[in-house]
Nucleic acid binder design. Structure first.
Lengths: 205, 205
DNA sequence: GTTATATCGATACAGTTATATCGATATGCA
DNA sequence: TGCATATCGATATAACTGTATCGATATAAC
């Protein structure tokens, strides 16, 4: 019974469990303690996370691997296909456009756009009509910071509901669109800050 | 007085304040409420975050922009130069290697390595000695998941203390090395999950 | 079949993070 | 010069997240 209340942090971990299970060679059952140990997480935390998506765990044996995977897949929506478009086919854009890892999660970047037309891209003229007729739900912005808001505004005129933004700008969007900002430089800088703190703590023992 | 206790989440926001301030055209003073409004954060939260790095805020006027930037810069260590090496010059690796945004945070990817030698890369033979003599502190892994652990092990034999890992594997590292995993596919899948939840909630009004 | 035990599911507690509130104070304005 | 007020800095509260504990139970071992 009892619907576990969902917390944001769980969403970050469910994909980790899923990826781990997917790559697990054996078909044996898995349990919360096993996952916890393998992924360096708390045993109770893993159990609670799994309880959110499945109630098929059995004492002593845990979960059946394929069943658990199916439950995570279902909860996270990996079985629902999602179409994304990408704007800005520079180095980073190309890397994402070619990346094959999205497929496993039901995601496909179906088309790239840029100012110049190439073998791979369409130009922005056709952007709006393409997104509408193809029912695109996700937009990926990999243009420079000067053009990001402009592209974002254009996306807002289509059916796009989520934007994955790699330009280092805070975008203004209507309420019904959600934005996830990714900033490579600041991410790395945070890692480095942690590193320096750790080094400092070691010195002050 | 009173040293504010630091929380993990602050480290994620300080770079956001910094970037915002850096791009702000005017040299006028900034206050916590102004930053909060501009970045869509809580006013108290911003104030507490800023209190961690600076005590130069004045009632009614807030902080002097350049002074606040300097304090964040100092706290986060952007003025300390950090050298990083990158292994795996595929699409993603190249994109990162060419990216100019790191500079602002004192970070430089000084050398790329790959199996094949090119104009841009060295081969792995010279990896260890290079890292040691150049005092490299940060390693970036952009090889495929099959080779990631191998590269990681090699990094552990040098002075590298932090690893930024883009391969979809959990790396085994000694305690003194910290790892930050970045997984493009799962990140996007989480955004999409949020999107679907939001859509669902709108339907169930 | 009986017993021992690993794991589940649930509840209670602790730690972390975000928000609300309030007095103190530096500035702008009458 | 004195008053009104925006913002700071601090404390208190609430929300979220993670960890510890315990009884219940399905399986394995005897």
């Amino acid at each position: 019974m009892l619907q576990n209340t969902r917390t944001e942090a769980v969403l970050e971990r469910l994909p980790i469990y899923y990826e781990y299970l997917r790559k697990l060679p054996s078909e044996e059952n898995v349990s919360a303690p096993i996952l916890a140990k393998a992924l360096n997480l708390g045993e109770v935390q893993v159990r609670k996370d799994l309880a959110l998506v499945s109630h098929k765990g059995k004492p002593k044996t845990g979960y059946e691997k394929s069943e658990l995977m199916a439950d995570i897949k279902n909860y996270m929506g990996y079985d629902q296909k999602t179409k994304a478009v990408l704007v800005g086919l520079g180095k980073l854009g190309s890397a994402l456009y070619d990346y094959e890892g999205f497929q496993e999660f039901g995601i496909e970047i179906v088309q790239a756009f840029d100012r110049e037309q190439t073998r791979l891209t369409k130009t922005m003229d056709s952007f709006t009509s393409y997104c509408i007729t193809e029912h695109i739900e996700v937009g990926i912005i990999t243009v420079d910071e000067v053009h990001a808001q402009e592209v974002c505004d254009l996306m807002a005129t289509t059916g796009i509901r989520a934007i994955w933004n790699f330009a280092p700008v805070r975008l203004n969007v209507p309420d019904y669109i959600i934005v996830q900002n990714v900033n490579m430089a600041t991410s790395l800088s945070i890692l480095i800050k942690h590193m320096r703190d750790q080094i400092e703590n070691q010195v002050n023992l």
